[in-house]
């Protein structure tokens, strides 16, 4: 039994310490934004934020998360009150099948939290570990820049600041 901090809440998890975080998020906590893609840390669909950094949850065992803060897409905003990164992806219609998008948003969020005005090259380099087979790359890039502007102009709903731990 261990305590896992997800989206600001403590959860008591009954799982082996070598269980990948992704399984716990989806199976135990029913947080289904993070997706299982390759299971090898190569496609990015499972990306969540841990202590401000984007990590592949499919190759991150629980044992590494003692005392750390996990943020999933659900922790950023909801359909009713989307975070800037979610609004930006919707406004740019950046998803086609959407399987990769939750992971893309999480890494983009982590980038924007440490660099509020990334250049196009920086966004491309940051998102390089993510695969999208629909081919909406250009929209995704625009969405990240739009999110940067949204965050910058404080167009935020007051209750959701869209900042992950």
């Amino acid at each position: 039994m261990m305590t896992l901090k997800v989206n600001g809440q403590d959860h008591q998890i009954d799982a082996d310490p070598d269980t990948p975080l992704l399984y716990v998020l989806r199976d135990d906590l029913k947080l289904n934004a993070a997706k299982f893609g390759c299971g090898l840390g190569q496609c990015g669909a499972c990306t969540v934020i841990v202590d401000g950094k984007a990590v592949f949850s499919c190759v991150t065992p629980l044992v590494l998360l003692e005392g750390k803060q996990v943020t999933t897409l659900e922790g950023l905003g909801s359909v009713a009150a989307p975070a800037p990164i979610q609004r930006a992806f919707m406004e740019e219609q950046a998803a086609q099948c959407g399987y990769c998008i939750a992971g893309m948003m999480m890494r983009a969020q982590a980038l924007l939290q440490r660099n509020s005005k990334p250049t196009d090259d920086e966004v491309r380099a940051e998102l390089a570990p993510h695969l999208c087979r629909c081919g909406t790359h250009m929209r995704i890039l625009r969405a990240v820049h739009r999110a940067a502007r949204l965050m910058d102009t404080a167009e935020l709903t007051p209750e959701r600041k869209g900042s992950a731990q």
């Binding site: 082996d16 310490p17 070598d18 190759v59 991150t60 065992p61 629980l62 590494l64």
Partner: peptide, 14 residues
């Protein structure tokens, strides 16, 4: 124990 758990989860799968 910690290293073994990390290996089992993060490394052994490949």
């Amino acid at each position: 124990p910690e290293g073994a758990a990390i290996y089992a989860a993060a490394c052994a799968s490949c």
